[in-house]
Design a protein around this nucleic acid. Sequence first.
DNA 1: TAGTGGTCTAGACCACCAA
DNA 2: TGGTGGTCTAGACCACTAC
Lengths: 256, 256
Amino acid sequence: MMDAIFSPDGFDATGAGPLYLQLQRRIADAVAAGRLSPGDSLPPERDMAAMTGLSRVTIRKAVEGLVTQGHLVQKRGSGTFVAPRVERMEQALSLLTSFTEDMARRGKSVDSLWLSRRIDGPAPEEVMGLGLRAGERIARLERVRRSDGVPLAIERAALPLSVLDAPEAVTGSLYAVLQARGMRPVRAVQRITAANLGERDADLLGVAPGAAGLKIERIGYLANGRAVEFTRSIYRGDAYDFAVELKIADNEGTMP
Amino acid sequence: MMDAIFSPDGFDATGAGPLYLQLQRRIADAVAAGRLSPGDSLPPERDMAAMTGLSRVTIRKAVEGLVTQGHLVQKRGSGTFVAPRVERMEQALSLLTSFTEDMARRGKSVDSLWLSRRIDGPAPEEVMGLGLRAGERIARLERVRRSDGVPLAIERAALPLSVLDAPEAVTGSLYAVLQARGMRPVRAVQRITAANLGERDADLLGVAPGAAGLKIERIGYLANGRAVEFTRSIYRGDAYDFAVELKIADNEGTMP
DNA sequence: TAGTGGTCTAGACCACCAA
DNA sequence: TGGTGGTCTAGACCACTAC
C-alpha cells in the first residue's frame, strides 16, 4: 500500500505545484483516509526517495511540513511515524479554576515536571502586573504540566514574597497552597494569543519546533484588588480547546 | 554593520549547535536589539552565503525559521526584509460583539474581501451545531476581514436560510443585517484553539505558511435558544489578543 | 554494527519583480 | 534584462537508536 503513496507516477502534472507539496498532499490524504494509522511507520527517507524518484532533500521538505502540523513524528535513529492521536482537552474559560483541580474533576492524573522553583528578581512585566515596589523580589515557579504522562502546558508563575515566601512549599496545586494561606485569587484577567513554539518550549511539550501554541497571560487578584499571581502559560495547540460563553453587552453589574 | 552579523568568524564553536541555528540567533538578536529595523532589507541569500562562508541552503534554513516566526518577510524577485511591526488588537472575549462594530469603536476602518457568499449544502458539523433538518440548506459567507488594509482574520459563517435567505444582502456587518431582521444572537458559545496555518489561509492573511493562528468556532443563539449562526474564524496570532475576565466558580444560575 | 534522521555542500534551473 | 527568492538534485558526514 506504500506503493500507491510513493509511486513515481502522477507527479509533475503541470499546474499541480512543487513536488514536495504534491507528495505532502499524498501523505496527508493517506493519513486522513486512515490508510496510514497512528503509530504506523513510514519508509526510511532514503527509501521514499528511491521509490518516488525524488531526492532525499525533497522528501524531507515534504515530511517537514507534516511534522510541524503534528501529523507525523520523527525520531532520530529510529524512523518516521504517523503521530498518535492526542485527546483534546476542553476547558471553560469563564471560571477561575486550577489546572490540578480541573484535571482531577475529569479523572485525569496530573503531575508536574519542575523547571524552577526559587526566589528571583522580577521581569519588568512582572513589576507592572503585580504592582511591585522597587527592589521587591518574587517567588518564581516554572513547570511542565502533564496529564497521564502527556505534556499539556508550560506554566511560569510569579508571586510576590508577601503572598508566597517559600516556593519549595508548592508541590502540587498552587491554588491549594494559596487557599491555605487565604491568598487564593477570586478574580483574574487573561490575555490569549497564538504563537509558534520556540525550540525550547517545543521540546518541553514534546512537539516540533514551530508548532502552534496557545499563550495565556493571567493576573489573579484577591477580593481586595491586590494582585497575587502573574502567570504566563503555553498550551499545546493540538491538545487544548478553551470554551467561552459570550453574552450581549450592557447588562452587567446592575443587579440591585 | 551587516559585516558583524554575517561575519564568517564565531561559527562552529563546538557545542553551539547547528550552523543554521547559530546564524538564526545572530539575525534574531540583531532584530531584537534594533540593529535591524522593520523594513530594512537583508543581503541577498547568495551574498549572505558568501559573507558567512555557509552554503545557500543553510542560509535559507536559518531564514525560514525567522519567516514563520514572523520576524522576516520574503518577497520573490525582490528580497528579504525585516517584518513591519503589526499593531496588536485586543478584544474582550466575554461580550458578544461584531467585528465591524468592534473596529468602528476603536476608530479603525474595516473592509471585507469576499471569498464566497452563496446558498450551499451544510457540512456535518454545521448540521450538528445549527440543528438543521435533513436536506435543509444554509447561507454561506466567507470573507477576509481587514482593518486599515491589514488582513486580520478569515471568517466562515453558516446560517440557516430561515435566518438569512439572501446572502448577497450582507455587505458590511453581518450582525447589523441580522439585527434588522430581529435575528441578532444574544448569546454565543465559543471554542478557541491554536493551529498552524495551511498554505491557503496563510496566503489570505499575508503570513508565512505554518505561522500560528487562533481558531475560533462560535455558535450564536437567539433568546429563545434557537441557533442562528455557526462561524469558524481564523485570526492572525501575531495581530490579536483576546482578553477575558475570570471569576470563581459556584455562583451562577442560583439567583432566586 | 547497521540503519535512521539531522546537517551541510555546490551547483543548477525556474518564476517573479523591478528598472 | 539582471537580480531575487523558490525548487530540486546527488552526494557526503554526523549523531543517535536499536540490536
